[in-house]
Amino acid sequence: MDASDLRIALFSGNYNYIRDGANQALNRLVDYLLKQGAEVRVYSPTVEKPAFPPNAPVIHIPSLAVPRRPEYRIPIALPRRARRDLEAFRPNILHVASPDVLGHRAVSLAHRADLPVVASVHTRFETYVRYYGLAFLEPVLLAILRRFYRRCDAIFAPSDSMAQLLRDQRMNYDVGIWTRGIDREIFNPGMRDMGWRRGLGIEDEVPVIGFVGRLVMEKGLDVFSETIDCLSKKQVRHKVLVVGEGPARDWFEKRLPQAVFTGFQKGANLGRAVASMDVLFNPSVTETFGNVTLEALATGIPVVAARATGSESLVSDGVTGRLIRPGAIEEFAGALALYCRDPEARAAAGRAGIAMSSRFGWDEVNQALVDGYCRIIRQRAAGGRPPGPSPVP
Rank of each mutant, 00 (worst) to 15 (best):
M191N: 09
F148Y: 15
A9N: 07
H60A: 15
V121E: 08
V274H: 01
P393W: 12
N269V: 08
M191I: 05
R90W: 08
D363A: 13
N14A: 10
R380I: 09
R380P: 07
M1G: 13
H60I: 01
R198H: 14
P326W: 04
W178M: 09
T262G: 06
G263Y: 11
L166Q: 09
V304Q: 02
G21Y: 05
N16Q: 12
K219S: 08
R180V: 03
P257D: 06
R105T: 06
A328R: 07
P393V: 10
R19I: 08
P283H: 07
C340I: 09
R249V: 03
V365H: 00
A347M: 11
P54D: 05
V243N: 07
H60S: 15
L215A: 04
I228E: 09
E71P: 01
I74L: 14
L338N: 05
L294T: 02
H60K: 14
P50C: 10
G267H: 11
K219V: 11
L94D: 07
S316N: 08
D5A: 14
V242Y: 10
R147W: 11
H95G: 04
G263N: 06
N366Q: 11
S159T: 07
T320L: 10
G327V: 01
M277C: 09
I376M: 05
Q379A: 12
Q24Y: 12
H111L: 13
E364K: 15
K35H: 15
R105H: 12
A308N: 00
D229F: 11
T227K: 00
I209V: 15
E344A: 14
F332A: 04
H238Q: 13
Q164W: 08
R255A: 14
P62G: 12
D278I: 03
F211L: 12
L336K: 02
F224G: 01
E71V: 10
D20P: 02
A3M: 10
T123C: 06
G220V: 02
A368G: 10
N16Y: 05
R237D: 07
H111G: 06
R192P: 02
G133E: 06
G350L: 00
A352H: 06
A25N: 07
R80W: 13
V47Q: 11
A305T: 04
V117P: 00
L115F: 09
P389M: 08
N188I: 05
L137R: 07
G267Q: 10
P189D: 03
N269H: 12
A82H: 09
H104N: 11
E287D: 15
L221A: 09
I186D: 01
V392W: 14
V319T: 06
F52A: 06
D250S: 15
E48W: 12
P139I: 07
A248S: 13
V140M: 10
R80S: 13
N282P: 02
E48S: 15
A51E: 05
I182A: 06
A82W: 10
K254L: 14
R325W: 09
R380M: 07
R83F: 02
R69S: 13
W362V: 04
P389K: 09
Y373C: 01
R80M: 12
L86K: 05
P326I: 03
F281A: 05
S311W: 00
V117G: 00
R346N: 05
A333Q: 06
G37W: 11
H238N: 13
D31K: 11
F125W: 14
R83W: 04
V42Y: 00
L29K: 09
P91T: 11
A119I: 06
